[in-house]
Amino acid sequence: MALETWLIKVKRTISKHPNHKSNVGILSFEIASLMTKLLHLWNSLSDKAIIRLHNESIPFEGVTKLVSNNELFLLKLACAELVENIKLVAKSISRLSSRCQDAKLRCFDQCFDSFTDSGHDFHLWALSSNDMEAKNKKMATLIAITATLYKEMEELSTMENNLRKCNCFSMKDQQRLYCQSQEVKHLKQKSLWNTTFDNVVSILVRAVFSILARFKLVFGLGFFKSNSNFLKPPLDTLGASALALHYANLIITLEKMIRSPHLIGLATRDELYSILPSTIRSSLRGRLKGILGFIADDPLLAVEWRSAMGKILSWLSPLAHNMIKWQNERSFEHWDFNLLPKTNVLLLETLFFANKEKAEAAITELLVGLNYIWRFEREMTARTLFECSKIV
């Protein structure tokens, strides 16, 4: 009876902690992506990134024209986005920590909340900057190996599928398949795949605690408590109307056309007009009313329009390109955990919080200028051809 009682207790313990001493396996790819986000967050809080935020991002002309010229408001926007990203990463770590054997790791939620509210780091998980840099190198290595594993597993799957389709395959094919499977097996041993939940989560919790400590050092407890609702775009913004990405693509298209107006055909012009929102179409019609009948043959006016469009693009174009970068870096389809994002683009540097009316006015101005330059180029070309025909 004593033996049976003991076995029952063992079974209950195993059922309560089914992943006892288990490896992360297929979850290694999700964890590699999570580590990449942690590295990105740490880089976002570096001295270089903070200096850039204060000296370049917040005072940038496009931001002050379309988003806000209130420095404190913009700083709160940046902090709110960073806080939200830290919280999202912590939520993912919490799901993994529930699979750990170590009781301290299983209590990650409570520890994180305590550190957030009171600054108490009971388990001393927060690392110094030097130790965190060393930890980052370890994570980067694990990310790279796990990314290679993912690639080789895809290759193995492709080879297996191809061989299944064949009625017969050679000894050479079998050898290639065997070598590929051995490579995958080897990479599993070296990568996150073969790491226990306790070991992985131990790395993750130390990283996120270090990031949180760094955030408090840079910004202070008050900024971290920023409400995530602060990131909700006001009703008069492109983000609220779900037009930020569409307008970004429109601006980039205009940028290309303005650089090479002589390459714009009637079909391209009509296609551009067809993708314009109704508000911009209406504004454009009002601006062009009464001038379409006049010949665009004033070279001085063409120079003035080129200069005006160049100035607008100098502050509007970066917001559009940043919008695309921000979207791609956070898109599941574009996410590659083997590559850190090349930039630390924040939402305030995009069109997301841009005032819709002001953004549309700037776009309309570009369209009016492009219309004149396009007509001027056609007029000059027609005159050149006419003069040539007279000589012939």
Rank of each mutant, 00 (worst) to 15 (best):
L72K: 07
F73H: 03
F73D: 03
L77Y: 09
L77I: 13
C79P: 07
C79Y: 10
A80N: 06
L82T: 06
V83L: 08
N85I: 08
I86A: 00
V89K: 07
A90I: 00
A90C: 04
A90H: 09
A90V: 01
K91E: 01
I93P: 01
S94G: 07
L96N: 00
L96R: 02
R99A: 09
C100W: 12
Q101N: 12
A103K: 11
K104Y: 08
K104V: 03
R106P: 02
R106D: 06
R106T: 06
C107V: 10
Q110D: 08
Q110L: 13
F115G: 08
F115R: 07
S118M: 10
S118L: 15
S118G: 06
G119W: 01
H120R: 08
H120E: 10
D121T: 12
D121R: 14
H123G: 03
W125N: 04
S128L: 00
S128T: 00
S129C: 06
D131S: 07
M132R: 08
K135E: 15
T141P: 02
T141V: 11
L142F: 15
A144S: 14
I145W: 01
L149D: 04
L149E: 04
Y150V: 05
K151L: 01
M153S: 15
M153L: 14
E154D: 11
E155L: 13
S157I: 02
M159T: 09
M159H: 10
M159C: 07
E160S: 06
N161D: 11
N162D: 11
N162W: 11
R164W: 03
R164D: 03
R164Q: 06
K165R: 11
C166M: 09
S170T: 06
M171W: 10
K172T: 08
K172D: 13
K172G: 09
Q174S: 10
Q174G: 07
Q175C: 09
Q175V: 11
Y178D: 13
E183N: 12
V184M: 03
V184Q: 00
V184Y: 01
K185F: 02
K185A: 03
Q189W: 05
Q189M: 05
K190C: 05
S191M: 10
S191L: 10
W193I: 00
W193Y: 07
N194Y: 12
T195C: 14
T195K: 15
F197E: 01
N199L: 11
